[in-house]
Lab assay of single mutants.
Amino acid sequence: DMPHRFKVHNYMSPTFCDHCGSLLWGLVKQGLKCEDCGMNVHHKCREKVANLCGI
């Protein structure tokens, strides 16, 4: 059981939050991507995600 390793990410195409399902808005640093499993989340959704990475 490992925690997610979220890192700020710049998305080049429209991407949706894997937690709430809404679009990650903006041009740069729109959200966070787990370096291990690739989960994408809003900055505000980070604390709502279970801290178990499903690598």
Rank of each mutant, 00 (worst) to 15 (best):
Cys34Met: 00
Lys7Ala: 05
His42Ala: 06
Glu35Val: 12
Asp18Pro: 01
Ser13Asp: 03
Pro3His: 15
Gly31Glu: 01
Lys48Arg: 12
Cys53Glu: 13
Arg46Lys: 06
Val49Gly: 14
Cys45Val: 00
Ala50Tyr: 08
Tyr11Ala: 04
Lys29Arg: 11
Val8Glu: 08
Leu52Pro: 11
His43Arg: 09
Val28Asp: 04
Trp25Glu: 15
Lys7Ile: 15
Val8Arg: 07
Asn10Asp: 06
Gly26Glu: 03
Leu27Val: 07
Asp18Cys: 13
Gly38Met: 13
Cys45Gly: 02
Trp25Pro: 04
Val28Asn: 11
Val41Ser: 10
Asn51Cys: 06
Gly21Val: 06
His9Lys: 15
His9Trp: 08
Gly31Pro: 01
His19Val: 13
Leu52Gly: 13
Gly54Met: 09
Met39Ser: 09
Asn10Phe: 05
Thr15Asn: 09
His42Met: 04
Asn51Thr: 02
Asn10Gln: 09
Val28His: 08
Lys7Asn: 04
Trp25His: 03
Leu52Val: 11
Trp25Phe: 09
Lys44Arg: 13
Asp18Met: 05
Gly31Thr: 01
Lys7Phe: 14
His43Glu: 07
Leu23Ile: 12
Gly54Trp: 06
Cys17Ile: 00
Cys37Ala: 00
Met39Lys: 08
Glu47Lys: 08
Gln30Asp: 03
His4Lys: 03
Val49Lys: 08
Gly26Arg: 01
Met12Ile: 13
Val41Glu: 02
Cys37Met: 01
His9Asp: 12
Ala50Leu: 08
Lys33Met: 13
Leu52Ser: 15
Lys33Thr: 15
Cys37Ser: 02
Asn40Ile: 09
His4Pro: 03
Asp18Lys: 12
Pro14Val: 08
Thr15Asp: 05
His4Met: 04
Arg5Ser: 15
Gly26Lys: 01
Pro3Ser: 15
Glu47Leu: 09
Lys29Glu: 07
Leu52Cys: 08
Lys7Asp: 04
Val49Trp: 10
Ser22Asp: 05
Cys17Glu: 00
His9Thr: 14
Lys48Glu: 10
Cys20Gln: 00
Gly31Leu: 01
Cys37Gln: 00
Gly26Met: 03
Lys33Pro: 00
His43Cys: 09
Gly38Glu: 14
Met12His: 15
Met2Gln: 04
His9Gln: 12
Glu47Trp: 15
Gly38Gln: 11
Lys29His: 12
Met39Trp: 13
Lys33Ser: 14
Lys48His: 11
Asn40Trp: 02
Lys29Asn: 09
Lys33Phe: 14
Gly26Trp: 03
Lys48Val: 10
His19Met: 14
Val8Asp: 15
Gly54Ser: 09
Arg5Leu: 15
Asn40Cys: 10
Met12Pro: 10
Cys34His: 00
Pro3Val: 15
Gly21Ser: 14
Ile55Tyr: 04
Cys45Tyr: 01
Asp1Arg: 04
Cys20Phe: 00
Leu27Cys: 05
Phe6Glu: 03
Cys37Pro: 01
Cys20Ser: 01
Lys44His: 05
Ser22Glu: 06
Asn51Asp: 02
Leu52Asn: 11
Gln30Glu: 02
Asn10Pro: 03
Met2Trp: 04
Leu27Glu: 03
His43Asp: 09
Leu32Asp: 11
Leu27Phe: 14
Cys17Met: 00
Lys44Val: 08
Val28Ser: 08
Val41Lys: 05
Gln30Arg: 01
Ser22Arg: 13
Asp1Lys: 15
Lys33Trp: 12
Leu24Ile: 13
Met39Tyr: 12
Lys7Trp: 06
Ile55Ala: 10
Asp1Trp: 02
His9Asn: 12
Leu32Thr: 10
Glu47Gln: 10
His4Gly: 07
Gly38Asp: 11
Cys20His: 00
Gly21Tyr: 14
Ile55Leu: 06
Leu27Ser: 03
Leu24Cys: 15
Glu47Pro: 13
Gly26Ile: 02
Tyr11Thr: 04
His42Asp: 05
Cys45Phe: 01
Arg5Glu: 04
Met39Val: 13
Ala50Thr: 07
Leu52Arg: 07
Arg46His: 10
Gly26Ser: 02
Tyr11Gln: 03
Gly31Met: 01
Tyr11Trp: 15
Lys44Gly: 11
Asp18Val: 07
Leu32Ala: 10
Phe16Asn: 08
Phe16Trp: 14
Gly26Phe: 03
Lys7Val: 08
Cys17Pro: 01
Phe16Ile: 12
Val28Glu: 05
Val49Ser: 15
Val49Met: 11
Cys45Met: 00
Lys29Gln: 10
Met2Asn: 14
Tyr11Glu: 01
Cys20Lys: 00
Cys17Tyr: 00
Gly31Lys: 01
His9Gly: 12
Met12Glu: 04
Ile55Trp: 07
Gln30Tyr: 02
Pro3Ala: 15
His43Val: 08
Val8Ser: 03
Glu35Tyr: 11
Leu52Asp: 11
Met2Cys: 15
Ser13Glu: 05
Lys7Met: 06
Trp25Ala: 04
Glu47Tyr: 09
Cys53Asp: 15
Leu27Ile: 06
Glu35Arg: 09
His19Ser: 12
Arg46Met: 10
Gly26Cys: 01
Asn10Met: 04
Asn51Ala: 05
Ser22Val: 06
Asp1Gly: 07
Leu52His: 10
Leu23Gln: 03
Ala50Arg: 10
Cys17Lys: 00
Val8Asn: 08
Val28Cys: 05
Ile55Gly: 11
Asn10Val: 03
His42Glu: 04
Glu35Trp: 12
Pro3Trp: 14
Val41Tyr: 07
Lys29Leu: 08
Met2Arg: 04
Val49Gln: 07
Asn51Leu: 13
Leu32His: 14
Gly38Cys: 14
Trp25Met: 06
Lys48Asn: 09
Phe6His: 15
Asp1Ser: 05
Pro14Trp: 08
Cys34Thr: 00
His19Thr: 13
Asp36Lys: 07
Trp25Gln: 05
Pro3Tyr: 15
Leu32Phe: 08
Arg46Cys: 11
Tyr11Pro: 03
His4Val: 02
Gly38Ser: 12
Gln30Leu: 01
Tyr11His: 04
Gly26Ala: 02
Cys20Glu: 05
His19Ile: 08
Asn10Thr: 10
Lys29Ile: 06
His43Phe: 07
Glu35Gln: 13
Cys20Met: 00
His4Arg: 03
Met39Asn: 08
Leu23Glu: 03
Val49Arg: 12
Glu47Gly: 11
Tyr11Phe: 14
His19Gln: 11
Asp1Tyr: 04
Cys45Ala: 01
Cys20Trp: 00
Pro14Asn: 03
Phe6Asn: 07
Asn51Ser: 15
Ser13Val: 06
His42Leu: 04
Val28Leu: 10
Asn40Thr: 11
Gly26Tyr: 01
Met12Val: 10
Cys17Asn: 00
Leu24Pro: 02
Met2Lys: 05
Asn51Glu: 02
Gly21Pro: 11
Val28Gln: 07
His9Ser: 15
Leu52Trp: 15
Gly21His: 14
Cys20Tyr: 00
His19Asp: 13
Glu47Met: 08
Val49Ala: 05
Met12Gln: 05
Ile55Pro: 05
Cys20Asn: 01
Phe6Ile: 12
Gly21Trp: 15
Asn51Gln: 08
Pro14His: 04
Cys34Phe: 00
Gly31Trp: 01
Lys29Ala: 10
Gly21Arg: 15
Cys37Thr: 04
Asp36Ala: 06
Met2Thr: 09
Pro14Cys: 06
Lys44Asp: 08
Cys37Arg: 00
Ser13Cys: 10
Leu27Gly: 03
Ile55Asp: 11
Gly38Arg: 12
Cys20Gly: 04
Asn10Arg: 03
His42Phe: 00
Cys53Met: 09
Val41Asp: 00
Asp36His: 06
Gly21Thr: 13
His19Glu: 15
Cys37Trp: 00
Pro14Tyr: 05
His9Met: 14
Asp18Arg: 12
Pro3Phe: 15
Val8Gln: 05
Leu52Glu: 12
Arg46Ala: 07
Leu23Phe: 14
Cys20Arg: 01
Val8Phe: 04
Val41Phe: 13
Met39Leu: 10
Gly21Asp: 15
Phe16Glu: 04
Cys17His: 00
Leu52Lys: 14
